[in-house]
């Protein structure tokens, strides 16, 4: 096994580890969706407002997970450690 192959293998492992970042947004989006469901249950008239606010908040919460995804893509295909 050459040093180059070792770097590729470790890059793949690092990409997998970077995707652990998906954990946080999943929990956050679930909490937001749960509270939105509770809000619609309490006040069904405000359904469209609650939904748009929830989507906006979830999109912002998703950003950190996407940073992890960007790091994983960079590790796999851009190969900064050559």
């Amino acid at each position: 096994m050459s040093g180059q192959d070792f770097i590729y293998g470790m890059s793949a492992v690092g990409a997998g580890l970077a995707m652990i970042a998906g954990l946080g947004p999943g929990i956050g989006q679930g909490i937001a969706a749960g509270h939105a469901a509770a809000a619609v249950g309490r006040n069904p008239g405000a359904k469209s407002d609650v939904t748009s606010t929830m989507l906006l908040g979830q999109a912002v919460a998703e950003t950190t997970g996407l940073y992890g995804f960007a790091v994983a893509i960079i590790l796999m295909f851009v190969k900064p450690f050559n």
């Binding site: 999109a59 998703e62 950003t63 996407l66 940073y67 995804f69 960007a70 893509i73």
Partner: peptide
């Protein structure tokens, strides 16, 4: 940066 990375990341993850 966050605006563009959000759009890129979502569409790219779907494509992948």
């Amino acid at each position: 940066l966050s605006l563009s990375l959000r759009l890129f990341g979502n569409v790219m993850s779907g494509t992948v």
